[in-house]
Structures are given as C-alpha cells and as structure tokens.
C-alpha cells in the first residue's frame, strides 16, 4: 500500500531527524522563521477545514440567492463568507442532482480547495485515487460504498489549473425543518469531493 504505513519506525525517525536538520539550517541561514511555520500549521489544524465548505453547502441549500450566486460566480460567493485563503483563489461549484454526480480529482498532483476543505486526506493524494478516478470513477465510488445507477451521469473534474472545485451535494430528503447550522453538520468532506452523498440524520444508507 502507498501510505505512511510503509514507513517502519527507523525510516520515520530518519525523516524526522532530516526535517529537523533542514529546518534548523534554514533558520540559521535566515530563510525561515520557525514561528511562521508553527502559525501555518496551527491555521490548518484549527481554523481552515471542511466546516468552511459545509457552511457554503448549507447556505446554498437554504438561500436561493446565494445558490444562484454560487452557480454564477463561486469565487465571489465563497469569498463573501470570508473563505478567501490560498488554494481557493478561483472556485467553481458543481451541483449534484438526481441525474448528475460530480467527482473531483487531481491526477497530476494534489490540487484541492484548501480554503473550504482544509488539507487533503492521504487517499486523495495517493496513486490509487489519482490513477483511477478518471478512468473508472464508478469503481472508485464503489470503494467508498457508493453505487450509482448507470443512468446517472458521472462528471469527473481533473483539477489541472488553479481552478478549485467544490461539489454541492444534493440536500437529503426530510430535512425541510432543519436550519443552516444544523444542515452544515450533515455535510461531510467526502460529499464535497464527490465520494459520498449527504445522509439525512438517522438514515442508514
């Protein structure tokens, strides 16, 4: 398997030592302030994550004007909520429907909408997903337990430029009484990449 699990303990220790040596050298030479590195890490650990995207989705479900704005100019609509950060400079929102399902990938590297989803999970950056999403999206979705009828059109978006894609999943049935804040809690990261659907509370599948 391609993952951190390959690293035996000694390899991890080697890498840890190598990275520490590199950081200390870069600080000594005046290229890097380690406190800035701390600040960047903290930002992605605590401030920028899929809760941002979930807010965008829930707002799109509740507010027809925002929904229309998101379709027409996702960059402006998303930036209006304060989600302007890097890897979200240029946004396109794609809307799942009963007929069409969208799936986002970056076959060439790991382009991902950091501003609304945070840092990508390992599987998104790894060869199994990157190689297969474009040639056999249905079998990739099956790996996530998602089987779509052959009549549903699957649109895969390979993020080859600085345009970042956000999937707006379908709003689940029986959620009419829920407000935006509660709806946002239903929206998962995978649903906004396109490897899951959003489930109503209490739904089993």
């Amino acid at each position: 398997m391609h993952s951190h699990d390959d690293d035996d303990h000694s390899h991890l220790t080697d890498t840890e030592a190598r990275v520490r040596a590199l950081e200390s050298l870069l600080s000594e030479k005046g290229y890097l302030d380690s406190a800035a590195v701390d600040e960047i890490v903290q930002t992605y650990e605590t401030k920028i994550g899929p809760q941002n995207g979930a807010h965008v989705v829930a707002k799109a479900w509740c507010n027809p004007e925002f929904n229309a704005w998101l379709k027409d100019d996702a960059t402006a609509a998303i930036h209006s909520l304060g989600y302007t950060s890097r890897q979200g400079e240029h946004m396109v929102a794609v809307f799942n429907s009963i007929d069409t399902h969208h799936l986002i990938v970056c076959t060439l590297c790991s382009c991902y909408p950091w501003s609304v989803l945070g840092l990508p999970p390992t599987w998104y950056k790894s060869p199994p997903f990157r190689s297969r999403a474009v040639i056999e999206p249905r079998s990739v979705l099956a790996d996530f337990g998602l089987e779509l009828p052959a009549s549903t059109k699957i649109e895969v978006h390979d993020s080859t430029a600085e345009i970042r894609y956000l999937v707006i999943p379908q709003r689940p049935d029986n959620t009419e009484s829920m407000n935006e804040t509660d709806l946002a809690k239903l929206v998962t990261r995978n649903a906004m990449i396109g490897t899951a659907l959003v489930k109503a509370p209490g739904a089993t599948s």
Partner: peptide, 12 residues
C-alpha cells in the same frame, strides 16, 4: 497518473 492501473483500491 491518470489512467494507470495496478495501485489497488482506494483505502480511507
């Protein structure tokens, strides 16, 4: 990597 084969399933 697009279209390559043999990497196995996507494991989350």
């Amino acid at each position: 990597l697009g279209g390559m084969m043999g990497f196995g399933p996507v494991i989350e």
